[in-house]
Nucleic acid binder design. Sequence first.
DNA 1: AGCACGCCGACT
DNA 2: GTCGGCGTGCTC
Length: 802
Amino acid sequence: MQVAKVIVDVPTSQTNHTFDYLIPEQWENIVQKGMRVSVPFGPRKIMGFVLEVSDHSEFDKLKALDEVMDLTPVLTEELVQIGKWISEETVSFYIQTFQAMLPQILKAKYKKEIEVLTDVELAEELKQLFAGRVVMDFEEFVERNGNYSLLLKEVKNGHVQINYIVKSKETNKTKVFIAPNKEPYLLEEALEDISNRAKKQKRIIEHFLHHETPIEQKQLLTQLSTTTATINQLVEKKLLKKVEKKVYRDPFQDTDFERSNSLPLSNQQQTAIKPIWQAIEEKQDEVFLLHGVTGSGKTEVYLQAIERVLDKGMEAIVLVPEIALTPQMVQRFKSRFGSQVAVLHSALSAGEKFDEWTKIHKKEVNVVVGARSAIFAPFENIGIIIIDEEHETSYKQDEQPRYHAREVAKKRGNYHHCPVVLGSATPMLESYARAKKGVYHLLEMPDRMNEGEMPPVEIVDMRDELYAGNRSMFSRNLLEAIKTRIEKKEQIVLFLNRRGYSTFVMCRECGDVMKCPACDIALTYHKSSHQLKCHYCDYQIAMVKECQACNSKTIRYFGTGTQKVEEALREHIPEAKVIRMDVDTTRRKGSHKKLLEKFGNKEANILLGTQMIAKGLDFENVTLVGVLAVDAMLHLPDFRSSEKTFQLLTQVSGRAGRHKLPGEVIIQTYTPEHYSIQLASQYHYQQFFQQEMQTRRGFRYPPYYFLTLINVSHPNQLKAQEVTKTICKLLFKHLSDQATILGPTPSPIVRINNRYRYQCMVKYKDEPNQKAIIRKIQEHYYDDIHRNDLTIQVDFEPYSLM
DNA sequence: AGCACGCCGACT
DNA sequence: GTCGGCGTGCTC
C-alpha cells in the first residue's frame, strides 16, 4: 500500500497539515513528492500537493486520491523543503507558500456540475431546468435561481449527482507547421502532374524542393502570398502534411539580440570577482555583498561569474527588481547567454510566464533573470544566485507568505553549496552591517568605469526661492539648466514622487479638504480625466465645482503631482517635449517599454516620472537630473525614510552623465541641511552608514534590533483597537522582558477601504518563542477572522510601517 | 473554503 | 409536527 501525504488547497489553520490518501494501484510508484493531485475532501474535490509518499498511515479510513495532475513533480524536493521553511518563518499556511512558488497558471480551477442519473422520476421543476440535458454547470443552476433544497432532495433520492471537477489552467499554445510528406524525387514527379493552371501549388512544392524543413504555416502563407485553401489541396494529395507543434510564446520574438562577448575586466572588477570565482570552484555557500557605485560595472561582474558557473554545467539565478527589469537589462543577459536565458517578470502574460517557467522546469535553459518569485526557479544544480539592487523593497513580498527573496536565496545557496552575491550601490543598512561584521564577504567597487566621476550634485534651498519671489515649482537654477540642455540637444530626467495633478484640494472659504469616503486620506486631483481619485482604494469622482461643506466656489489645488509638473513645463518651456511616466501612463502592457524607447530615440527632451524612472535607466544623452522635491519622502513616518531618501537620491543621480557627456544633478528641497540629502549629494555612503547606524541604535531599530509588525484591521474601529490591545497584552505576557512591545497604535492611515487599522510593534534581539505565540494568537482569533471580517497580518522584518 | 449537522423559532 | 434560519465543527 502506498499513501500520499497531501497539503490541500484550503488556506486555514485548521487544514494546515497533511491529509493522507491512498494511492490507487495504477498510480503506485508514479505519484511522487511535489506533484499536484486532485483529492476528495469532504463532499467535494480539491487540489493538493503531495509532500510525501509513505507505506502506511496512522489514519484508518483512508480515501483514495482522485487524479494525478502532473507527469513530473512541479516542486523539487528542495523546493518542498524550502516551502515548509518559509511557511514556518513567515507564519503562513503551507498551501499559500507552495502556490507562491509556482506560476499562477498552475493554480487549480474548480468546477461543479449537476448530472442527471434518471430523468424518469425527476421532479418536474428540475426537468424543465435541464430541458433534456444530462449535465449542467452548477453556476448556471445558481444564475437561473434553481431550487437548491429540491436539488439536495434529488441528490438524496439518487436521481441527480453533483460532480466536482478540478482542472489546471495550463495550456499549450500550438502552431501549425507544414512539412513535405514525400521524398524530394516524388515531389518533383508530382510537380509535373500538377496542372499548369495551379501556379500557386507549383510554387509551394518548389519551395519544399529547396527546403525540406517544416515551416510555420503562417510564414509560408506570407512568403508565397497564398492561402490555406491552396495548402490544404496539397495536403489532401498527400504531398505535404500539417504538423502541430507545441511552441512557447516568446515574449522577445520581435527583438534582435546582438551577441556580446565578455568585456575585459577593470582592476577593481577583477579584485571583486576573484573571491566569487573561488567560491564557485570550491562550492562554498558564501554570501558576498558587492558594494559598487552606479556605473562601476557590477553587471559585467555578474555576467562573468555566471559564465564560470555555466562552464561547469551549472545553473544561475539572477534577481532584478521588478522596476529595473527593463528591456535594457534583459538585453544584456540575452545577448550574452542567448537562448539559455529564461526571463520572468510581471509584464509577461500568465501564459508567457508559464512558458518561461516550463523552460526552466524542463532544463532547457540554465540562466533565469527575473523578479522576486524567480528565486523559486526549479533548478537542481545551482552554481550561483545573484541579487542586484539588493536594497530594493520589492524583494519582499507584501502579502502572505511575506518572504524575502534574499533569505530564500541564502537558504538555496546553502542547499546547493553555492555563493550568493548581493549587489548594490546603496546596500541596505542591515546588509552592510552584516558585511562589516564579517557575516557577509564585503567586496567594494568604489570607482566608476573609465575614470568617470559621479556627476556633481547641487542642492537648491526652495525657501530661498520663495524669499526671492519665485513661487513656481522650479528653482531658477533648475529652469536655467533645463533650458541650456534643450538648446544643446541633451536630455533631462525629472523626478517627482507623486502622481496625479495636485495632492489635495481645499476650499479657501472654510478650509474643507476633499477626502475619500472610505479611507482616511485626501483625494488627489487628476487633471487629464478631471477627477478626484483615492490612491488607496478605487474610489473616484468627477471634480467638484463647489465646496461640499459650504458651497463656496473657491476651490484651490495644493501640492504638486507629475501631471501638474508636466503642465508647468509646457508653460515655462513650450518648446520642450515631455514624456510623463507614472502608474497612470504605464498601466497598459508594453507602454513602459514604449515610452522608454521613445525617450531613447530622442523623441523627447524631458523624461518626467515617479519612482519607476529612478532605477536602471541608462541613456547616454541624459546630462541633467532634477529632483523636484524630496521632502515628502523624508518626512514619512517610517524609520527607514532617511535611508530610502539617501538610496533614491543616489540612484537618481546615477542616471546622469553615464557616458561621454558630463552630467549634473539638481536636488530641490526645503530641508537642505538634512544629512541624507547632504551625504547623498557627496556620494558618502560610508558616512551615511555611520550616522544612520547611530540613529538606529538610539531608537532601538534594525539592524540593532529585529522588528515584528502586527497589523489588525476591522470595519469597527473599537473592535480593531481592542483586538490589537489584547494582542499587545498577550505578547507582553509571553515574550521575554528583553522585548519591547509598542501599541496599540493607530496605523499612519487609520482607515483604508472602510476598515480601521491598528498596529502593534515588537522590537527584540532574540525571541525563539515568538512565532509559536503568534500562531496561537491567530488561532485564537480564528472565528473572528473567519466570520467576523477581522484581519491580522504579521510582518517580520517589515519594509513598510504603513 | 464549503458543506453537513443540529439546534432553535415560526409556520402549515 | 416540519421547514428553514444560522452557529459549530470537520474534512484523510
